[in-house]
Design a protein around this nucleic acid. Structure first.
Length: 510
RNA sequence: GAUCUCGUAGCUCAGCCGGUAGAGCACUUGACUUUUAAUCAAGGGGUCCUGGGUUCGAGUCCCAGCGGGAUCACCA
């Protein structure tokens, strides 16, 4: 045990003294809770009697549990604030009631002196309204449930709304999320909304009859996306394994296997940079539906996001994000990629050859690498000139084939594939294709990726022979979709950083 | 990975031109039976991120490192 602060030493001494007085600071038995603080404060009712006195009509025998977050002594009485999962309520204690006889040790010692802020307690009593009008629990029984031996940085607000001792340092908040959620309970709302978002999405898919599945996180070949993986090693098999960067190829194997619709909501892992929109592990939703194409998928996404937004935003489809208002009600604008570039630059990149594209990139002050092909440059031009305009949900459709080795060739436009990405607030939220199910075409695309890899592109896709075999057996026409769950959560909870929508964002070790 | 910026008490922060560290809350002791940032009186608490350097003297200036935040690059 190393250097304890004065306050930690005092709390440990208090813990010992409580035990010496015969009180268990960590009792094993359950404590029955019959009410929540927020419900009481919202619903307490009283009547005024003929003699002018007031009488509570409800909550006259309740039992609450939570942390003591403030304590005010007033002689032989005391006021405290109790915080439970719902909110806070004031407690009122009188010595003569807690300790009716001569022995006032429980009140004078245990409650008045040995109780610390942050301690978990259970209280029973009746609710009334104080002279100053605050709904308060008049405590008749008091019990320690768990002692806190480390001081909490409790936030205080005065009558003018000034905030004192705010626990605001993001590093501390993320590293000690348990403290953050305790002293800044408003952040719990983000995670409650995130949970509502996920359960609404599952409900939407389940109602269509699609099946939630789980596919391997440890994969021998990291396929399905262009990204650098985390590598690990399996001892018994003595082989390298990768944490998945995508689950696409496994979900398609299930479509080959005869499921009409499968989806998975789970973590993906990418060994790349971290910033306010990237965490090394992130949550993605991927869904594949047989006999559909990307036009159908656009409609499905509109219906799904509208449904999910309503579940999170109490029936509204409009999310406030910073100073923007984003409406998730469909239909969304559809803008082919090349038209989008024309719209915002006036240039027709489709007509340009590689040298002309390179020149255009220079004009835009884009740093072009030698190994970039047409597709990569067009993608960069799009990112530079169009992306930030796409505030309301917008589908960008029909991408160059080079960038998209798993999507089917466009039915009418050579050089393009049937792919769309959904942009909201200038950021990509979803990505979908009419899936490539021609096994010979797929093999050629993988081989093109291998060539890119030989040219030094570390993110080029690896060839997955077993996946190709599954396509050779025959995959029905299928449309697939991926949604970045963390980014959708950011939009629906008005948060500017991914760390705020992750309970435990990745941090450097201390 | 690059640039900017920050690191002082449990928490939030002051600390001037370099002169051995300060406030509020929290904590300790005492008073008070409807208070609410309770109040009143008294008191304790510091590896000034780490390591070097300049200087008679460094929280302060310089260098390096560690960690955070912001912006950028890569990516979803």
């Amino acid at each position: 045990m190393q250097n304890l602060s004065e306050q930690e030493i005092v709390r440990r001494e208090n813990l010992q003294k409580i035990r010496e007085l015969g009180v268990d600071p960590y009792p094993p038995e359950q404590f029955e809770v019959t009410a929540l603080a927020a419900d009481i404060v919202a619903n307490f009712e009283e009547e005024i009697l003929e003699d002018g006195k007031k009488r509570g009509l409800n909550y006259q025998e309740v039992s609450l549990a939570g942390r003591i977050m403030a304590s005010r002594e007033a002689g032989k009485a005391m006021f405290m604030n109790l915080q439970d999962s719902s909110g806070r309520i004031q407690l009122y204690l009188r010595r003569e009631e807690i300790c009716p006889g001569e022995d006032t040790a429980l009140f004078d010692m245990v409650i008045k002196k040995l109780l610390d802020l942050g301690d978990y307690v259970g209280v029973k009593g009746f609710v009334f309204r104080t002279r100053t009008g605050e709904v308060t629990l008049h405590v008749q029984e008091f019990k320690f449930l768990a002692k806190s031996i480390r001081p909490l940085p409790i936030v205080k607000r005065d009558a003018e709304g000034n905030v004192f001792d705010a626990f605001t340092d993001p590093e501390q908040r993320y590293r000690m999320r348990y403290v953050d959620l305790t002293v800044n309970p408003e952040y719990k709302d983000i995670f409650i909304k995130r949970s509502k978002m996920l359960s609404a999405m599952r409900r939407f898919f389940d109602d269509q009859g699609w099946l939630e599945v789980e596919t391997p996180i440890l994969q021998p070949i990291h396929g399905g996306a262009a990204a650098r993986p985390f590598a690990t090693h399996h001892n018994t098999l003595d082989m390298p394994l990768y944490l998945r960067i995508a689950n696409e190829l496994y979900l398609k194997r299930l479509i080959v296997g005869g499921f009409d619709g499968v989806y998975e909501i789970g973590k993906m892992f990418r060994n790349e940079g971290m910033d306010r929109t990237h965490n090394p592990e992130f949550t993605s939703m991927e869904i594949y539906v047989a006999y559909k194409d990307y036009n159908w998928m656009m409609k499905m996404v509109e219906e799904c996001l509208e449904y999910v937004a309503k579940a999170v935003l109490d029936g509204s489809t409009v999310a406030r994000f910073g100073d923007q208002e984003i409406d998730f009600a469909g239909p969304y604008e559809r803008l082919p990629l090349l038209e989008g570039i024309r719209k915002y630059t006036g240039k027709d990149v489709a007509a340009m050859d590689e040298a002309q594209l390179r020149q255009f990139c220079k004009e835009l002050h884009l740093e072009v690498e030698d190994n970039w092909g047409r597709g990569k440059m067009i993608d960069e031009i799009f990112g530079e000139t169009v992306e930030h305009h796409l505030i309301q949900p917008t589908y960008i459709t029909d991408y160059p084939i080079e960038m998209t080795p798993l999507a089917k060739k466009h039915r009418s436009q050579p050089g393009l594939v049937e792919r769309f990405e959904l942009y909201v607030n200038g950021k990509e939220i979803a990505n979908a294709y009419t899936e490539l199910n021609d096994p010979l075409d797929q093999r050629e695309r993988f081989e093109d990726q291998l060539k890119l890899r030989e040219r030094g592109d570390e993110e080029a896709m690896a060839l997955d022979e077993d996946f190709l075999r599954s396509l050779e057996y025959g995959m029905p026409p299928t449309s697939g979709l991926g949604i970045g769950i963390d980014r959708l959560a950011m939009l629906l909870t008005n948060q500017q950083t991914i760390q705020e929508v992750l309970l435990f964002p990745q941090m450097r070790p201390k």
